[in-house]
């Protein structure tokens, strides 16, 4: 038995076929390894960034340490890429396999387990975030009146500004987490800068990266779930991580959400409300001149190269920087 990296299209196709035997779909991946015996695939594992996914081993080989070979090889490859902390989302039935490799349980529900392995520990990482926040906002105690807003802000609009302002008025301290991913049209750095600029005038607001522990739809692997339950599960995991770690350690009292209109996101907010109950405050969408402001509206204007209309929904403090930024991106 030998572990190989899938480089050719043909190999990738074979892995895909192999996975269907386990009723798994091939998810979006960065690279895949497979285990070969007699010119046949008998096991496979893949990764995307720091997320390990699509592990499957032929039942005939399960007693031969095949999973260990694959996981070891993958971990050393991730280490070569300077990734020393990694995550796994899997079915509860596989929880023990990963625990035996030294992975630690973060949260679980009846359909998904979320584990982490490697160097960083969630409690310590969130305590680090807390220390950073105290630098901006002053001491955070158990009874501090502190709230948080999690935004993707792709790009930051007056709607986001309104949501953050509302939280800032109602609470002593407010934390804005910007989702840390480079898959949106605007890069993470750009989005963070825009949010930071817009919030600069609000003294009780700190803007920081969301950390890799705030799970988003872009990284959440869904290949082992029936497609109708993906959004609900994602929201549930998000809620559990928030409740068991962020809320517990940073003592958040409320989490602010913007009211959603898209069906998918409405469902997401529903689940959050279900899990977190009174901790959730849903703020009505910001309406400007009878138009409901949203990031997708701004993106639509930009695609039509209509910068003036787009700028109407961009916070004042951002407009100069924003115009410069979209110049290259959209050729306006």
């Amino acid at each position: 038995m030998i572990v190989k990296e899938a480089l050719l299209q043909g190999e990738k196709q074979q892995i895909k076929e192999f996975l269907t035997k386990f009723s798994l779909k091939m998810d979006e991946v960065e690279g895949s390894l497979y285990l070969e015996d007699d010119d046949k695939i008998v096991g496979t594992i893949s990764y995307l960034g720091n997320i390990i996914k699509c592990l499957a081993v032929d039942p005939l080989y399960q007693s031969e340490n095949a999973a260990t070979l694959l996981i070891n090889e993958l971990i050393s490859r991730l280490n070569e890429k300077n990734i020393y902390s990694y995550f796994v989302f899997t079915k509860p039935m596989y929880q023990n396999i990963f625990l035996s490799f030294g992975f630690r349980l973060i949260v679980k529900d009846d359909k998904v387990v979320f584990l982490e392995g490697g160097n960083d520990k969630i409690e310590e990482e969130i305590k680090k975030i807390k220390r950073k926040l105290e630098f901006y906002l002053g001491p955070i105690e158990e009874n501090s009146d502190i709230a948080c807003v999690i935004v993707n802000a792709n790009p930051m609009t007056t709607g986001h500004e309104y949501l953050i302002e509302t939280a800032s008025k109602n609470h002593d301290q407010v934390v804005v987490f910007v989702v840390e991913e480079d898959k949106s049209i605007f890069s993470f750095q750009e989005r963070l800068t825009l949010v930071y600029l817009a919030c600069k005038r609000l003294e009780n607001v700190a803007v920081i990266p969301s950390s890799k522990y705030i799970v988003s739809s872009l990284t959440f692997p869904s290949y082992f779930l029936p497609s109708d339950s993906v959004d609900t599960e994602l929201a549930r995991i998000d809620a559990l991580v928030y409740k068991n770690y962020f809320k517990k350690i940073i003592h958040f009292k409320k989490r602010y959400l913007g009211k959603e209109t898209k069906e998918k996101m409405v469902k997401y907010n529903e689940v959050l409300k279900e899990e977190l109950g009174e901790d959730i405050i849903e703020v009505e969408r910001y309406v400007e001149d009878g138009v409901v402001v949203s990031a997708s509206l701004v993106r639509k204007y930009l695609e039509n190269k209509d910068l003036d209309s787009a700028l109407k929904y961009i916070p004042k403090g951002n407009q100069t920087f924003f115009s410069l930024m979209v110049k290259d991106k959209y050729g306006i």
């Binding site: 260990t68 996981i71 070891n72 971990i75 050393s76 280490n79 300077n82 020393y84 030294g102 840390e180």
Partner: peptide, 24 residues
């Protein structure tokens, strides 16, 4: 935020082995 960390790792999680990670 990916601040480059001084970190090194060796070994595996096979039987009779150990995976060591050391960081500053």
């Amino acid at each position: 935020m990916s601040d480059i960390q001084k970190i090194g790792s060796a070994g595996s999680v096979e039987s009779n082995d150990c995976l060591v990670t050391i960081s500053a």
